[in-house]
Nucleic acid binder design. Structure first.
Lengths: 225, 225
DNA sequence: TTAAAAACAGGTGTAAACCCCTATTTTTTA
DNA sequence: TAAAAAATAGGGGTTTACACCTGTTTTTAA
């Protein structure tokens, strides 16, 4: 029997080692290598003789994060399947991850058994949606009334500029700070912020920050404190 | 040789299983039990025939978090040593944890070797400070000019009410929302918020939220999104 | 190459946040 | 049982955030 060849990326060493310990006992799984962040993973993929079939990657990582890693892998290594590993996720975030190429989601509070099952299913069928993700996918496909199918998919997600503004908000910048930094009018910044509030359904900046962190849209590492 | 008896608490099952896998191989460590959150841990401690010498606990957990767990253990089980496990932490937070009774800190990106060393040192000496923590402790003892020694220790930390207000801010509540909820005047809430801003050196609520999450003062699980 | 989406930006107004100050009462702790 | 710390709450003010409009220009993709 051919072993499933995988690679791991997570910035928390203890967690990574834990996964290695758990998966190392699996006779049908072969861990080719593990990486401490996105850059490390991409470098190892580029220089590896033997490519993994599956990459299990954390979403929140310093430097190149899971989202960017997934995009890059899809471009450079289209045969590699990406399983996203995370603690929290919201519907629009998952749908976006799927649209950029992740084939499965694993919550960090999953059982080792579910993790192994997910890896096996991805190796076998190319993807795996658990119940929650399936629910989200279903909801996104059923149009609320007579609207276009794709609506929920994109409309809930963010533009580049919105992400930029969100990051600056998370860096404690005010509207005018952000306007200066981005060389645009404060009114435009307000527009982006309002769109963020609408899309995230947050009530205020506190909600935006929570959303951003929960969905790993910005990293805590680069901030103050 | 007597094995070191420990207990683990972490809400992320995969992480917990990983630790079990790592520590399970250690011949000088005996894991009595593990818990999925603070309440679970306390319950198991109360009903256990054999008490652990050391508890390794995550700080961010739903329900009873690591800070509260540490306080409770110190009261009810003063012989049990607490090792705090976390991803990020700031100087005032560590100093506060030490003052409430934690005997060591472990970053989640530590090596398994460091984790084992920390456990062994705590079992042997009763505490273990790594370089970073030592640095913080040192700084807190050296007065900036001629000020009182204890200053940095307490003045940077938070009162119960401040933590309550911080949590509600993180739940997207406004000043008047919080005032209603706590049956106090909005001005009092403002006072607490101002103290939080001073102590954290945050610029606005965005900063407060970041600080709260980074230092695991509030849990993401109970929130919206 | 033409719609659609994104980015831009203005008006007007209210609510909330934030800043400076003071001061009393309650709780904790040395 | 004092002294310290925490919790309470007020006056008076500026700045920022947020809501609900409107519209144009630029970029992206079918």
């Amino acid at each position: 029997m051919n072993k499933i060849k995988i690679a791991l990326a997570d910035d928390e060493l203890l967690f990574r080692q834990g996964l290695l310990a758990i998966l190392g006992n699996q006779e049908n799984i072969d861990i080719l290598f593990d990486a401490e962040d996105g850059d490390d993973l991409i470098n190892k993929l580029r220089s590896a003789d033997l490519q993994p079939e599956i990459v299990v990657t954390d979403l929140k990582m310093p430097g190149l994060n899971g989202v960017e890693v997934t995009k890059l892998i899809r471009k450079e290594f289209p045969n590699i399947k990406v399983i996203a590993l995370t603690s929290y996720f919201s519907k629009p975030f998952i749908l976006n991850m799927i649209s950029i190429g992740a084939v499965a989601y694993l919550a960090k509070n999953s059982t080792p058994a579910l993790m192994i099952k997910t890896i096996e299913q991805v190796a076998k069928k190319g993807f795996y949606y658990d119940e929650q993700v399936l629910q989200y996918v279903h909801e996104s496909l059923v149009s609320p009334k007579d609207k276009k199918t794709k609506c929920t998919f994109d409309a809930n997600y963010f533009t580049k500029r919105e992400i930029e503004v969100l990051e600056l908000i998370c860096n404690q910048m005010t509207t005018s700070d952000i306007a200066e930094k981005l060389f645009i009018s404060p009114r435009t910044v307000e527009g982006h912020r309002n769109n963020l509030l609408l899309k995230t359904e947050a009530k205020n900046v506190a909600g935006l920050v929570i959303y951003a962190l929960k969905n790993k849209l910005v990293s805590l590492d680069n901030n103050s404190f």
